[in-house]
Simulated assay, not measured.
Amino acid sequence: MSRPVPWIPAVLYGAVLLGGVYYAAIGPGLGARTAGYAALLCALIALDGRERHEWRGRRIAPGAVFALRVLLLCAVAAVDESGLSRVLFVLVPFLAFFAYGSAVAVGLGVGCVAALAGAFTLWVPHWQVRAEYISDLLMFALGVVLALATAAVAAREQQARARLEGTLAQVAELSAARERNRLAREIHDSLGHHLTAIGIQLEKAEAFTSLDPQGSAQAVSHARWSANRALDEVRASVRTLGPGSESEPVGLSRALTDLVHHLDGGSRRITLEMSGCERRPLLVLYRAAQEGLTNACRHSGATEIGVNIAYDERGARLRVVDNGTGFDPADEGFGLAGLRERVRLAEGTMAVDSSAGGTVLTIGVPW
């Protein structure tokens, strides 16, 4: 686990360094011990910074660095005349928490308190009845507890941040996947339909070039309309990139009328019936009509195709009926699967009834 609060050791080292030098200046005087004291503390500061910035990439064993830090702390305590360096040993359980976990950190914290009590026993006669040493021991124990609590809070904050980053990454990935799916549906439902329409009209134009020049020219005109419409819809999709930002056709009834008018021709006969009052355009019904007409024209061999749209107080209902050969529902392709997803997002209903006598696609969408 990396250390999320790297500034705490540096602050303690600096405070103890200034305090020890000040004590020497106003007391015993500055000398070799003070110089050694300052040099050891500077070495600790350098060790901490080097560990965070350089040694991490060199795969230095954390146990070796930890042991070196403890040895330097002991050396500082040995040359310290002020006694201030005792506070630095609260860093032992604090740093161990991030390197080895909470159990080892608590054990080392107890060990540090016990070591201080043992040192008093060895070098301070009758310290158990001297208030200043009892106070020092209690304050050191309290410092260890606070260091462990700070480490636990910092570790939990780091874990929560990591979980949040992971969640945000998942959300971004899901959003990207949803956007890819949306664009794939747009390409299939819009460009796929228009390319089918263009192919049908060009086939008609080629077949009737010599027999019906006027009909052939009209078919080419309809193909050109489909190409222009496809280009417009591509531009609209680019302008409205983002989930939930799909543009609605300007008037569903008018859009369906144009769709049927430019697709009808040849041996097929497409009829459009509308009833009720349209409240607002519904893109999902327009895409459903495109999908139903594309499937009927491209795959079913239908000669009669009917499109019916009915509006009422609750919403709109679309039916696309053809007399083609039908298909096996188990072979449902990407277009119908994408349409089901559109209908689900619009909180509507969808039913497909297909047999050898034809196919009926029914879509219901609330306002």
Rank of each mutant, 00 (worst) to 15 (best):
I198E: 00
Y133L: 06
A149Q: 04
L174C: 07
Q158M: 13
R180E: 14
A155I: 03
N181M: 03
T196P: 00
E173L: 12
P125Y: 15
I134G: 08
W123Q: 10
D136L: 15
V144Q: 03
I134L: 14
A131N: 05
L195A: 12
A151R: 09
G166Y: 07
Q128S: 10
A151L: 04
Q170D: 13
Q158K: 14
I198C: 01
L122P: 08
R185A: 13
I134H: 08
A177C: 07
L142K: 05
S190W: 10
R130E: 11
T167S: 15
T167R: 15
D189R: 04
D189W: 02
A149F: 00
H194T: 04
E157M: 11
Q158G: 12
Y133C: 09
R130W: 06
L164A: 14
G143D: 02
L195G: 11
V144R: 03
F140V: 01
L148Y: 00
A155S: 11
A151K: 08
V153M: 14
A154I: 08
A147V: 02
W123G: 11
T196V: 08
V171R: 11
I134F: 07
T150F: 00
R163M: 06
S175E: 15
I187S: 08
L164W: 12
D136Q: 12
H194D: 04
W127Q: 09
P125H: 15
H188M: 01
A149S: 10
G192V: 01
T196E: 05
L164S: 12
A131L: 13
R156E: 14
A197W: 01
H194M: 07
M139Q: 04
L148V: 02
F140Q: 00
I198K: 01
G143R: 01
R161V: 00
E132N: 06
V129K: 05
Q158P: 05
A172Q: 12
A177K: 12
L146I: 14
D136S: 12
D136W: 09
V124G: 09
A172T: 06
H193Q: 10
R180C: 05
E173V: 06
Y133M: 03
S190M: 08
L183A: 10
E186G: 03
G192K: 01
L191T: 10
V124A: 03
R130T: 11
R161H: 07
A176L: 13
H194P: 02
Q158E: 12
V144W: 03
V145T: 13
R180A: 13
F140G: 00
I198N: 00
T167P: 01
R185T: 05
S190Y: 09
L137Q: 02
N181D: 08
L122Y: 14
H194S: 06
D136Y: 06
A184P: 01
S175G: 14
E165R: 15
A147L: 03
A151G: 04
L146C: 13
L142F: 09
L174Q: 15
R180G: 06
R180S: 12
N181H: 07
Q159T: 12
R180D: 12
A160H: 04
H126C: 10
V171I: 13
E165Q: 15
L138V: 07
G143H: 02
T150C: 04
R185W: 08
A184I: 00
W127K: 14
M139I: 03
E173G: 13
L195S: 13
G166W: 08
Q128L: 11
